[in-house]
Structures are given as structure tokens and as C-alpha cells.
């Protein structure tokens, strides 16, 4: 059961790691982290905080871009190039194939994040900010958010073209960060139509702001363990639902 998933995951990992596009994203992230030093210089008293905040944002953007763009073509490329035909003719199920693809790209995201986190850690240490649990929790939140975006990209990518997949996922990324605000306005609004649409969106779109712990290491605010645990369960629920929905869409698809 697990073995085929792991074999597909290893191959997906190798595929993306050997893709030059990935290194464009890494360079982009390093530039953002580098820029964070320059931006910090603009402030006399808050240099360390501005640099660290911008550095975390750089990592978050890179991880999300990687999840959305690589995730959008994860399945469609296999279909377009017909490599999926030889794969599914082997003793693996469609669900194993999808979970393997998801796992492979997740491992790439973790690898890239680990590298970028090491760079940021050096920067943060140089700015005399402590590297502690809050630093790790902030990165963990970014990983969870990227995995949910990857789940969304995988779902859309199982039936839509890559450009549409990127558009849908990017739209949900934006809405996902406004879910809290949307919920607030839903409570305050007197428009019935707005209430219906907004409350529907707040239920079907993941609340991505829940994963934003990036200010915690910057302002040294501890994140309670129960909050991390609840958010982990929330993310796991979304990921399982998204992958299961993808499997359902994919289950009876004809490859013509």
C-alpha cells in the first residue's frame, strides 16, 4: 500500500529537484531575504524586526508559489505527456498515484523551506534576534499553508488546465487570507445576499490566516501549544478532504 506511494513520491521529488524552474523560485526567495536586510536599514530602531518579518514573508511567498505552480502541473503534465498511461498500467491505484505525487512535492517544499530557513536563521542571529520555538512555529505555519495550497492545486489540476488551476488556487489563496475579515463583515452586514455569499465562502475556503505565526518570533510572542495542535488538525482535515476529493474526481476519468 505504502510502497508504490513512496516510489511515486521519490520520482516526483527527483523530477522537481532536477527542474531548473525550481531554482528560479529559490533565487527569488534568496533575493527577498536579502532585500529584507536592506529594508531593515530604513528603520533606526526596528531594523531586526522589519528584516525578520520580511524574511519570513519571503519564505512564505516562495513556498506558496512553489506549491501553486508546481502543484498545478503535477498531474496535468503526466496526462499531457501520457506518462500516466505507463504508470497506471503498473500495479498502483489512482489514489496511490495522487498521494505519491502530493507527497513528492511536499518533500520538495520541505527541502526548500529547510534551506531557506537556514539562511534566515543566520540572518536573524546576525540581527541579535533569538532563534527559538517561535521561529520554528512560524516556519511550521508556512509549511501547513503551502500544503493546503498544494492540495487545492492538486484538486483543480485533476480537471482543469494549469493556467486555470493557478488562477483558481491563487484566488483561493487571497480569499483564504481574508476569511477572518469576511467573517467580520458578514456579521456586521445588513445585506442578505452578501451574508449568504460571504458565509458560504467562509465555510468552503480554508482560513489561511490561522497559519500566520510570522509575527511571533519577530515580537517574541509565544504561540500556545493547543493553538498549534488545533491548527495542525485543521490543516490535516483540509489536506485529507482535498486529496480525497481529487481521488474522487480522478477515479473514473478516461485518459483519451
Amino acid at each position: 500500500m505504502i510502497r508504490p506511494v513512496w516510489i511515486i513520491a521519490k520520482n516526483t521529488y527527483r523530477e522537481i529537484i532536477r527542474d531548473r524552474v525550481l531554482y528560479g523560485i529559490v533565487v527569488f526567495a534568496l533575493l527577498l531575504i536579502g532585500m529584507s536586510v536592506a529594508l531593515g536599514e530604513l528603520s533606526f530602531t526596528e531594523q531586526a524586526r522589519i528584516s525578520a518579518n520580511f524574511g519570513f514573508t519571503g519564505i512564505q511567498l516562495s513556498a506558496c508559489i512553489l506549491a501553486v505552480f508546481a502543484g498545478s502541473s503535477l498531474v496535468s503534465k503526466e496526462i499531457e505527456k501520457q506518462t500516466i498511461l505507463t504508470l497506471l498500467a503498473r500495479p498502483i491505484t489512482r489514489a496511490q498515484f495522487l498521494v505519491g505525487k502530493f507527497t513528492g512535492l511536499s518533500l520538495v517544499i520541505l527541502t526548500i523551506m529547510a534551506g531557506l530557513a537556514a539562511v534566515l536563521a543566520v540572518l536573524v542571529a546576525a540581527l541579535d534576534l533569538p532563534i527559538n520555538g517561535a521561529f520554528a512555529v512560524a516556519l511550521y505555519g508556512i509549511v501547513l499553508e503551502a500544503l493546503i495550497l498544494l492540495g487545492l492545486a492538486l484538486l483543480f489540476g485533476s480537471f482543469a488546465r494549469p493556467m486555470m488551476t493557478v488562477t483558481f488556487t491563487a484566488a483561493l489563496f487571497l480569499i483564504g487570507h481574508w476569511v477572518g475579515t469576511l467573517r467580520f463583515f458578514t456579521e456586521k452586514s445588513e445585506s442578505g445576499v452578501f451574508k449568504v455569499i460571504a458565509s458560504f465562502l467562509t465555510r468552503v475556503v480554508p482560513d489561511l490566516e490561522r497559519f500566520n505565526w510570522r509575527t511571533a518570533p519577530v515580537y517574541q510572542i509565544p504561540v500556545p501549544a493547543h493553538e498549534v495542535l488545533a491548527t495542525t488538525v485543521y490543516a490535516a482535515g483540509w489536506i485529507v478532504c482535498l486529496v480525497a476529493a481529487t481521488v474522487l474526481v480522478f477515479r473514473k476519468r478516461d485518459f483519451v
Binding site: 520520482n11 527527483r14 505527456k81 501520457q82 498511461l85 498500467a89 498502483i92
Partner: peptide, 20 residues
Amino acid sequence: SEAKQKIGFLPERPYFYEYL
């Protein structure tokens, strides 16, 4: 899966993983 283990398949105009 047991049956698939006994079957080999080459599709028409195969594109393979060119990075391997």
C-alpha cells in the same frame, strides 16, 4: 494488482521522464 504484475504496456508515441 496481481494481474497488472503480469502485464507490460508500451503506449503509442511514448514520452518518458526525460530527466531520468
